[in-house]
Nucleic acid binder design. Structure first.
Lengths: 114, 114
DNA sequence: CATCTTGTACGACAAAAACCATACTACGAG
DNA sequence: CTCGTAGTATGGTTTTTGTCGTACAAGATG
């Protein structure tokens, strides 16, 4: 369960108005990070970092999640030792209408054809 | 006017099926290249490299146009000494429906709010 | 408390990217 | 033919990025 201590360990996220399109695109241009976003969108709920089973080391994993967070693509919060990740769908849709949907669709069809 | 010699100087473009979403996103994550694409979309026609008046040197300019071409975002062809550039709207729309429109819209609203 | 699980911090490294200057090619115009 | 214009090629520098390993921190669990 999330505790008060968890909340204090929480980390900074850019406010909605600071999210830049260039940052979002750079974040999603990496295949590992795009995969994370796709799995997050498919799940529809928060997922811990370890749940993704990414083919990289722990520290690289931390790096990728930080890039996604600083770009404003995901929201992170602690729950015990786990860091839960969550798509910032609301903010992205408000800022860039249709973009997330088009990106997820594009990524999906590309995988299907591979 | 375009000549036979012009055609022989033409350069390789990736076929539609080789265009990767990651490459397109990486290409568009650079502000200079996004600006080129936006101006191309707004113009609706081909434009020579020099017509963009980009704030970088000639060689850097060549570099950015090559990245866009190799990502499959633009088509280039010679006309005299000028290299004409053209958005690959048809291919992008076929591969990634709605993506280009969402990107252009997003880039446009971002500039408006700046 | 001891230990396991999760994740972070830091330092290092190689590869890629963005940039420039210089030298060059190719076409067009005088 | 000569010169100007448009762009390429090459090679260099600097910055950024993706990756890792090691050491550490904090909560969960025995």
């Amino acid at each position: 369960m999330a505790t008060v201590a968890d909340a204090q360990r929480d980390v900074d996220h850019p406010p909605r108005e600071d999210i830049r399109l260039a940052g979002v695109l750079a974040a999603l241009a990496d295949p590992i990070r795009m995969r994370v976003v796709r799995e997050l969108a498919a799940a529809g709920t928060t997922k811990s970092c370890v749940a993704f089973e990414l083919p990289v080391s722990k520290s690289t994993c931390t790096h990728h999640f930080r890039v996604l967070r600083e770009a404003g693509v995901i929201r992170q919060s602690y729950r015990g030792t786990a860091r839960m990740n969550d798509l910032r769908r609301d903010d992205l849709d408000a800022l860039f209408p249709g973009l997330l949907a088009a990106l997820l669709l594009a990524a999906g069809t590309e995988v299907d054809h591979a």
